[in-house]
Design a protein around this nucleic acid. Structure first.
Lengths: 193, 193
DNA sequence: CCGCCTATGTTTACGATGTAAACATAGGCG
DNA sequence: CGCCTATGTTTACATCGTAAACATAGGCGG
């Protein structure tokens, strides 16, 4: 079955990491973002309460998973942006990458966004900021003449657009069509007046 | 305590309705969209399993709540649209109403969108379609010269924009600022080329 | 008007979950 | 070498969703 192996020693080498990867692995088999504490413990061949040696509670596990997810999302966006050889193309590419990431990792994406852990203690905001920083830089490059406030609004618009696309497509309220993603993202060009 | 009263008779007058309203009432006290079957039953002064006489399972209750929520959302948008005396103003007003509804009813909105019941048996899609229909009509009026495909893309963009705004603000990733809502929604005018 | 039938609630029960507390062991540091 | 602490296990409990068996109320046929 899909369980991990090793566990040769009583003391697991790095259980924290193993738990996170078990959970991520389990998330790929689902479409809702619910993993279950005991479930990931089982999948890691470890006692249910062993999780509590590495995470204070379920929310903390989720926070770690979300952090990992945000890292991967930012990586995907940066990679897509780098593949483009023009600023506006890079902007659009990273936007499309956002939506594609959500569609490719539905459960993980849902966990990142739906189970929003409001406490600022986790690394989530930092990871999130990597993507946010890229977005701000892109907008600044595309709208050099605009005021800071105008750019801020554009940042919010762009983020909301791709996030809304992702969520609506994941929820089945909009067809998860690749062409539609392209069209909806590419038509967004607020810096032309 | 916040519990309902009556229950004079053994047979509740209209328990189904009472359960739904208890649940909606409970949702107002939360910010995550989780109500709990037993919790609703308790709040209605009724046995836990009585719920199953009116809903096959928890998902069905959620579907009913979501349906109710979508009705209210559509009402809010239609009302906002009617208050405007110009087409583009109505369009913007109903968009802002969408976001404001989400911020005013965080738990209900989250229940509607996050716990997406994929089965098409419920009335959710119908209610949802009331708002979707309004949106399509508005876009058609605003872009009379555009092709059907262009309009479809604009519909998706507009929907994604307000939905993304709502979700990101609810998640605390964007400040839930009234001025920001206005700016982000009003700057969206894709029918000008 | 009476008695049964069915719709509607209740009780009890079961498995699963998140988590606290007490216990066990392994491996590094004195 | 022996203890101490970090890490994992066992046991236990409250809660949850839900199934099954039971109870009652109130309308309908006689």
């Amino acid at each position: 079955m899909g369980t991990q192996q090793h566990k040769a020693t009583y003391h697991h080498g790095d259980l924290r990491r193993a738990l996170i990867e078990s959970a991520l692995q389990l998330l790929e088999t689902r479409d809702d973002g619910d993993v279950g504490l005991r479930e990931v413990a089982r999948h890691t061949c470890v006692s249910a309460t062993a999780v509590y040696r590495h995470f204070p509670d379920k929310a903390a596990l989720y926070a770690a998973l979300a952090a990992e997810g945000f890292e991967r999302l930012a990586d995907a966006q940066l990679a897509a942006a780098r593949r483009a050889r023009e600023d506006s193309a890079a902007f659009r590419a990273s936007g499309q990458a956002y939506v594609r990431f959500a569609l490719a990792n539905p459960a993980l994406f849902r966990l990142m966004t739906s189970h929003m852990h409001r406490d600022g203690s986790t690394g989530v905001l930092l990871a999130d900021n990597r993507a946010a920083r890229l977005l701000r830089e892109q907008v600044a490059r595309l709208m050099p003449a605009a005021s800071e406030a105008e750019r801020a609004v554009t940042v919010v618009q762009a983020w909301a657009l791709v996030h809304g696309l992702a969520v609506l497509m994941l929820g089945g309220r909009i067809p998860p069509d690749a062409a539609l993603i392209e069209a909806a993202v590419n038509e967004f060009r607020p810096w032309r007046h």
